[in-house]
């Protein structure tokens, strides 16, 4: 009797957990459908190629309306790439330090500082960018300061915690035996780190970079505050920039009609970006696992 009750009890729990899991999937599906359906009307009037490959963005003009988001796609790629150039080496170096070199106490202090960094709201990063980074960039490199460079730097700081903490876990998870074997063969500490530990931790490190890219592409508020938000093709590091997310956030408040659908379509492009990124990361991880 008791056994049966227990079994029934278990199956209830299973059902509840299953529903929870379904809710997640349902949320993804519903959001996807919502974005796509809201975006579709745009393509009755504007060709997909004009939308993706034109830099002509004048959604409210009566005479010559334009719905080209190429500048924003390129803008997103620029600031994301810029953020990676700064954050990847810095993040991996920090992760190596935390996992391999620091004393336990130091690792704890630094580790919680990194966690704190992850908890700061993005609008605060934006403030910091406006008050400190943009003026410094203006002073050192010219321009208005609100630029690709400022946005990249702010984004880099924001994705550092992701890269550091996931890379550190990956590095710490490398079996101790590998390290011992390498050292006992007469390898130095650095040779051991670069030739054995990092290659063994590579799938996790790549995952951290992938997640960092995801966060950088999707970030809105902070880049909105320091990027300048001019709807033009960015020409260099000191040029103003508008990203896909900034485009949506800026116009959503007042857009209507076709303009509004163009913003949903921009969101759709963002969606595809993130999806491709996830697939890319997974493929690379599988490939790397096979190669080493």
């Amino acid at each position: 009797m008791l056994g049966r009750e227990k079994k029934e009890h278990q199956s209830y729990i299973e059902i509840v957990l299953f529903i929870c899991a379904l809710l997640c999937v349902a949320a993804v599906v519903i959001i996807t459908i919502f974005v796509l359906v809201s975006a579709l009307p745009l393509f009755k009037e504007v060709r997909l190629s004009d939308f993706l490959f034109s830099t002509h963005w004048l959604p409210t003009s009566r005479k010559d309306p334009g719905f080209g988001i190429l500048s924003f796609i390129i803008g997103s790629l620029y600031v994301t790439f810029g953020a990676l150039v700064i954050a990847v080496p810095l993040g991996i170096a920090t992760a190596i330090f935390l996992a391999e070199m620091s004393t336990p106490k130091m690792a704890e202090v630094l580790g919680s500082a990194v966690q704190l960094l992850a908890g700061i709201p993005s609008v605060i990063y934006g403030f910091f960018g406006v008050m400190v980074i943009a003026p410094k960039v203006r002073q050192l490199f010219g321009g208005s300061g609100y630029s690709v460079m400022s946005a990249s730097i702010v984004l880099a700081i924001m994705i550092l915690p992701t890269i550091i903490s996931i890379s550190e876990v990956a590095i710490s998870a490398v079996p101790k035996g590998y390290k011992e074997a390498s050292l006992s063969l007469g390898a130095s500490k650095w040779q051991t780190i670069f030739k054995v530990i990092l290659p063994a931790a590579r799938p996790g490190i790549l995952a951290s970079i992938g997640l960092g890219i995801g966060r950088a592409v999707g970030e809105t508020t902070a880049v909105l505050m320091v990027g300048g938000n001019a709807p033009i093709m960015p020409k260099g590091l000191t040029s103003m920039v508008r990203t896909l997310t900034m485009n949506i956030a800026t116009d959503m408040g007042y857009a209507s009609g076709l303009h509004r659908t163009a913003l949903f379509a921009t969101g759709g492009v963002l969606f595809v970006f993130i999806m491709l990124l996830n697939i890319f990361v997974q493929v690379i991880q599988k490939k790397v696992k096979k190669d080493i």
Binding site: P175, G177, Y178, E180, A181, S182, S184, L185, V196, P199, A200, I292
Partner: peptide, 13 residues
């Protein structure tokens, strides 16, 4: 002075 360990620790290569 080389060493062979208790648990085989071949590298994942």
């Amino acid at each position: 002075v080389g060493m062979v360990f208790q648990a085989s620790n071949v590298f994942p290569m």
